[in-house]
């Protein structure tokens, strides 16, 4: 397969996954803010959210201060912000367009229709109620993308690079979501149990893990179990352990003469998650742990690019 084709497929999948996770982040923030809390806390949540996904500088360049509505608009719909949901879906579509011949017509039409629909949204005038529906829609389109991929794409190299993109992006995004929310809850002024329960369940909902948590632990929600579920459970589809295991198997499937070291590093990371213990993770501090994880995922991304795709420039 052409390196450029693999590159487009990989980035197409990454951008769609990123759009979905942005919708998830915005959704959970909205839920967390349904609880009464101080102005200062609200601003802190949004600042940390922007910071965690690397958009704080971009936001500050065009805005004087943190205003929740403006942050949401910036992250979701701002056409000038290259990291917004809008831009991610545009980039996903551009990448798909460049390799439309490699996609099944169903998959291409799914992505193209998402883009055409997005352009129909009157995005400058979405109210708070519409936003919820908008985030749901973004998630649904991403689900549809994966469903159509699963149901129509050959299980060949193209599929491998596409899935590789999905899981590397998801690993990165889950780590960031967990990091910022975990911090926020842990550092928030102590509130009653109901309030805390609400915060944790919002986080679990944001990664579609609420029901899974109930099923796995059949017990009250505690921070260390939330961390365990999202970091170490290999059967949890958005956990770091699951994402890295998937990455490793797709990397093994597409291996070439240059990729041995990349496969080794991916395997090492996946094993450490598969056989890791939450006590050890929490002992180093979850924030430190996740920061290191994101660095390693980024290293794998660069190595995949130089082994298989177009070299990362700049």
């Amino acid at each position: 397969m052409l390196s450029r084709t693999a590159d487009h497929l990989y980035w197409m999948a990454r951008y769609i996954e990123r759009a979905e996770n942005l919708a998830r982040i915005l959704d959970v923030n909205n839920r967390m803010l349904l609880l009464p809390q101080s102005e200062r806390e609200v601003v802190r949540l949004w600042r940390e959210t922007l910071d965690s996904i690397g958009l704080l500088d971009g936001y500050n360049q065009t805005h004087d201060k943190i205003v929740p509505e403006e942050v949401v608009h910036f992250m979701a719909l701002d056409r000038q912000n290259p990291g917004s949901i809008y831009s991610c879906l545009r980039l996903a579509r551009e990448n798909a367009h460049a390799v439309r011949g490699t996609l099944t017509s169903e998959l291409w039409e799914t992505i193209n229709t998402t883009w055409l629909k997005l352009r129909e949204y009157d995005i400058e005038h979405l109210g708070a109620d519409d936003l919820d529906a908008f985030f749901e829609w973004v998630k649904l389109r991403s689900h549809q993308f994966r469903g159509v991929t699963f149901a129509t794409m050959m299980r060949d190299e193209a599929n491998c690079f596409l899935r590789l993109g999905t899981f590397i992006e998801r690993a990165d995004n889950t780590a960031r979501i967990l990091d910022v929310k975990y911090n926020f809850i842990a550092e928030a002024p102590r509130r009653d149990d109901a309030g805390e329960y609400y915060q944790w369940s919002a986080l679990l909902h944001s990664v579609s893990a609420f029901e899974s948590y109930r099923k796995v632990y059949r017990d009250q929600i505690t921070p260390s179990r939330v961390a365990e579920l999202l970091v170490l459970r290999t059967d949890m589809p958005r956990s770091l352990a699951h994402c890295t295991a998937e990455m490793t198997s797709y990397l093994d499937a597409v291996n070439n003469q240059r990729s041995t070291e990349t496969q080794r590093r991916a395997g090492e990371l996946a094993s450490s998650l598969r056989y890791g213990r939450i006590e050890d993770v929490l002992e180093t501090g979850l924030h430190n742990y996740l920061t290191r994880f994101i660095v390693r995922i980024n290293d794998l991304g660069n190595r995949i690019a130089s082994d298989f795709l177009l070299p990362v420039t700049g």
């Binding site: 397969m1 052409l2 450029r4 390799v99 439309r100 011949g101 490699t102």
Partner: peptide, 15 residues
């Protein structure tokens, strides 16, 4: 369209 229908690669100069 033609590349896909023929089952061959669609390349750009840089490829």
């Amino acid at each position: 369209f033609l590349a896909q229908q023929m089952g061959v690669e669609l390349v750009e100069g840089q490829d």
